[in-house]
Structures are given as structure tokens and as C-alpha cells.
Design a protein around this nucleic acid. Sequence first.
DNA 1: GTCTATAATGTGATAGAC
DNA 2: GTCTATCACATTATAGAC
Lengths: 218, 218
Amino acid sequence: MLVRPGSAGGGADGSGTRERILAIALDLFVEQGYEETSLRQIAERVGVTKAALYYHFRSKDEILLTLHEPVHELMRNAMVRLENPASGGGMWMTFLDWLIDQVAVHSRLLLMYQRNATALGAVHRKDPDGVQRHHRGPDVEPEQLFLRMLGDPAFSLDDRVRMAGSLAVVVAGAGLAMRPAAGAVDPAELARILKVAVRDLLRVGPPTPPPLPPPLPA
Amino acid sequence: MLVRPGSAGGGADGSGTRERILAIALDLFVEQGYEETSLRQIAERVGVTKAALYYHFRSKDEILLTLHEPVHELMRNAMVRLENPASGGGMWMTFLDWLIDQVAVHSRLLLMYQRNATALGAVHRKDPDGVQRHHRGPDVEPEQLFLRMLGDPAFSLDDRVRMAGSLAVVVAGAGLAMRPAAGAVDPAELARILKVAVRDLLRVGPPTPPPLPPPLPA
DNA sequence: GTCTATAATGTGATAGAC
DNA sequence: GTCTATCACATTATAGAC
């Protein structure tokens, strides 16, 4: 589920320790954050010693990077779609629809990214080559990817705000699904709602379905 | 600007070292994050030794908490406004308008919070009393404050998504203004745009201005 | 109010046995 | 593939001189 098997150097990992390390690290990184989580803590929960972790991973950073690999892949994929010159204004909408579907699948990973973006950036700055080694493709921080586009003077400030905003809405929606306080949420329904919501924000598509109880007198 | 003078224990701080510590810590916390920033680094940049920092602050955590005090105050203020039973649906819009104005003023502080929410949460969990001591009022993490409301079953999932989304749009807009890559942004114009945008997302107010012509007919 | 010096601790990481 | 034992280092924090 998390990683493809047979990715690292050595022999077959019969007991699946590597996967368990990743799963538990993901839990802890989401709960406490990367910096606040020590290798001792991870090892304890996995049921091995610190040294054992170093058999499976070269460093703590590498655990973080391995977990973020799917996120990076998602972002690379996103970039390719955005750079496709097929359409002008509709491109962004098409992209968002795709993203919404992706987000429903990877919501937990994205939550981890959201909580550890700062730490990931630090790792990124400290050892860019180490990041490169982990996944081919352009070595861009996901966040930077969109900032570049948002700086494009071809868009008005209004457009840029709404583009950045629509992205934020999607992420917030994904976050909503992850919070236990928000109750169980049907991913499919959430995706459907998000797609309509971003259309309202971006003022495209169907004019705007009115809410049933009018919340504010016009 | 950042803190009220005469807040800490000792005598008058003639040279304003305390304020300089806070200002520089803010810079570093925004740039690198709280965990990645060491006291040595702060002291170096201020031009004093590590020990000097401990004259002004009891711990590293206290520096973070002091910086977040205005943020907490903002959140407490927000909660009071939201719990005001004056209006039903319009309440949220009124609240957002107020928030947008506040965000324009405190954008830098909010960016710090956004980047260090995880670290702040860790401090929060580790020493809740220490947080309490810093600012009277309910001891709630800002993030938790809204999650509570978003869990209210009185709202449909669609409403909740749009409420959470509108909040995210405001935060994203503030973030946009802080990024050098996004170019200079007039805060007043940004605020105006945001207020219209969240109305579109929440489907209240003026029906929906079209994209191309000037989007504010008042 | 700031310094020097140092304590106390935890961290990520390595070496080598089994 | 996992262990024990240990290293080297940076960190927060304290004590006491000036």
C-alpha cells in the first residue's frame, strides 16, 4: 500500500519490517511532526532497536523522503498536466478535478506533508542531492511548484487569489476528511462537493446552485 | 508592534534587546521553522550570547509562545464573535469579513503560525500550563477551535466543506501576499478581492460577478 | 544586563558480534 | 536482519563572575 516491495538494497524482507517502520513513522509524523519524533520512539513502537532502522534506511531523513515519494510523484504528475498547453482557462479546472480525485486516495499522505512541509523543506535545503536520488524528475518542492504559477503576471491578482484559494479549498477538504472530530465522511461525496465548490469559487461551469436555506438576506 | 513593553520580570530594557530577540526569532521561525532554529543561531544574529537569551526568556518554548500571543488573542477574539448568537447564517460571513481585515494586519504572524503549527502543538501538549500562563482565556489550539465547529452536525457536509474552504481561502490569500515570488500585493486590494471570493464560495451576497469584467461593481 | 564556562541530556549515526 | 555498545555532536539550560 505504502511502498513498492523490493525497493531497497538488500535481500527479501520476510517479516515486512521495512513496511512496518514506514507505517509507524507515518503515524508518528502525522501525530507529532517529523522533528518531534525520534528514532528511538519509532524503534520502540516497531519493536526493534534503533540500529535496526539503519539497516533499512540510511538516515532519518531517508524515512521522511521515502514516505514523501508518492507525494512527489503526485506533484510531478500535476506539473505535467499543468504544463500541457492544451487549454487555457479550462486547464485549471480540469487539473483541479483530477487533483480532487487524487487527494481522496492520498489524503493521509497529504496530511503528513501538510504538517511537515517545513521540515521537508529543511531536509531539502540541506541535502538536495539526497532528495534527487529518491525520485527522478525535477527537484521541486511541491509548494514551490504552485508559487511559481501564482507569480505569473499574466493572471490578475483576483485570478491568482482564486486559483490559490481553490487549491486551498481542496486541501482543506481533504483535511476535513481526516479529522476524527469531523465525523465519518464519504470520500465520493466529498469529491463531488469539492468539484462544485471550486467551480463556484472560480466562477466557471454551472452558474451557481443556490443553497436551500438562504443564510444571508441579499 | 510585536509585544507590549514592560511585560517581563526585570528592569527597563533600554536597548530593546528583548524586542530584537523576538523580531529575529520571528524571522528565523518563518524561514526555517521552530525546530530547525537553535538558540545559538538566534543569539548569533542578535549579537549576544545564548545565555543572554535566558535572561529575557525562561526557555526556547517561551519565545515561541510569546510570539504566538497575538495569534492566540486573535483566535480568542474570533471565538467570541462566533459564539455570539446574534445571527445564524450571516454570522459566518460577518466573521470572515472581520478575519480578512485582521489577516491583512497580522499576515506575517499567521505565516509563522502556519509553518509552526505542528511544533506549537507539541509545546502545547508537553506543557499546557506554560501555555495557560502566557495568555488568559481558554486554552485552545487555534486549529482545534474551528474543527469543533466543523464537526457540528447541524451543518451539511456541503456547508462544512465551504466553511472550512472559505477559511482556507483567506489563509491562502494571506500567504500569497507574503511570498516574494508572488510580487508586491496591495493589502487593501487583496482584502477586497478576498471578501468577494468567499462570498462566491459560500453563495451569499451578490449573485456572482463574471470573470472578465472588473469584478467589483459594489 | 550580559558574559564565560559548563552541565545534563538526547539525538542521529556507526562498528562489529551473532 | 537484528542486536549491543558506543561515538560524536548539538542542543537546551544553569551557575556564577563582572
